[in-house]
Write a protein that binds this DNA or RNA. Structure first.
Length: 208
DNA sequence: GCATTGATCTTCT
DNA sequence: GAAGATCAATGCA
């Protein structure tokens, strides 16, 4: 859990994220993550500007859960890594549901096949039932309702550019299990919609 | 299949 | 005021 974030991040692949809720237990095996450094060389990180009220969890002790609200609609989950004060974290991007699929399906009615249950950071968070009430939870504590467990490391790990950002896109800080179906939709930078989406900030001004 | 668009919070300019 | 670590519904081929 300690060390450079781009070294710790791929070591989380294959780990299990387990959530215990009244409606049931859900376990997920991580297949895709992204590293975000707080050390200043990473302008795409929320920690780049320092400990704002939103990102202050990132500067806390390692093993904590950083949850943030994205695009006014979605919640995304990160694991804080590195020592206190550094501000490095790993974004949980995708995984495979291994326990409690029925509970996850109930939370994600839009998912038509199992692969879609946790394909993408906001979907993963929703399938696990993680929300703002979980901010700052200790993922390493046995009594925590959201926990991180060691699992089987993937046979092969791939690395490539991060998705959905416009700065520091050259850093190969996205890591995924090679061949995992739950990450296939995220094509390595450039070929997909990631790189070429001009002026997508529409709406709003179209009032008659 | 693929491209477009709405939703609407946090932070910076 | 504008952009962002996004998703899902819609329209068209």
């Amino acid at each position: 859990m300690l060390g450079p974030v781009d070294v710790v991040a791929p070591s989380l692949l294959g780990c299990w994220v387990v959530t215990d809720r009244p409606e049931g237990q859900v376990a997920l095996r991580l297949t895709e993550v992204e590293a975000y450094s707080g050390e200043g060389q990473d302008p795409a990180s929320h920690a780049h500007r320092g400990p704002t009220p939103r990102a202050e969890i990132m500067f806390g002790p390692p093993g904590r859960l950083y949850v943030y609200f994205s695009y006014g609609v979605h919640w995304c989950a990160n694991v804080v890594v590195g020592p206190e004060g550094r501000g490095s974290a790993v974004l949980l991007r995708a995984g495979d549901i291994v326990l409690g699929e029925e509970v996850a399906r109930a939370r994600r009615p839009a998912a038509r096949v199992a692969r879609d249950l946790a394909r993408g950071p906001a979907r993963l968070t929703q399938a696990l039932g993680i929300g703002p009430y979980d901010r700052g939870l200790d993922l390493l504590a046995p009594e925590s309702p959201v926990r991180l467990h060691h699992g089987s490391a993937p046979a092969t790990v791939s690395a490539g550019p991060r998705v959905g950002i416009s700065q520091a896109t050259e850093l190969p800080w996205r890591f995924w299990e090679t061949g995992a179906p739950s990450v296939s939709v995220f094509r390595a930078g450039g070929t997909g919609r990631g790189g070429k989406r001009p002026g997508r900030r529409a709406g709003q001004d179209g009032a008659p």
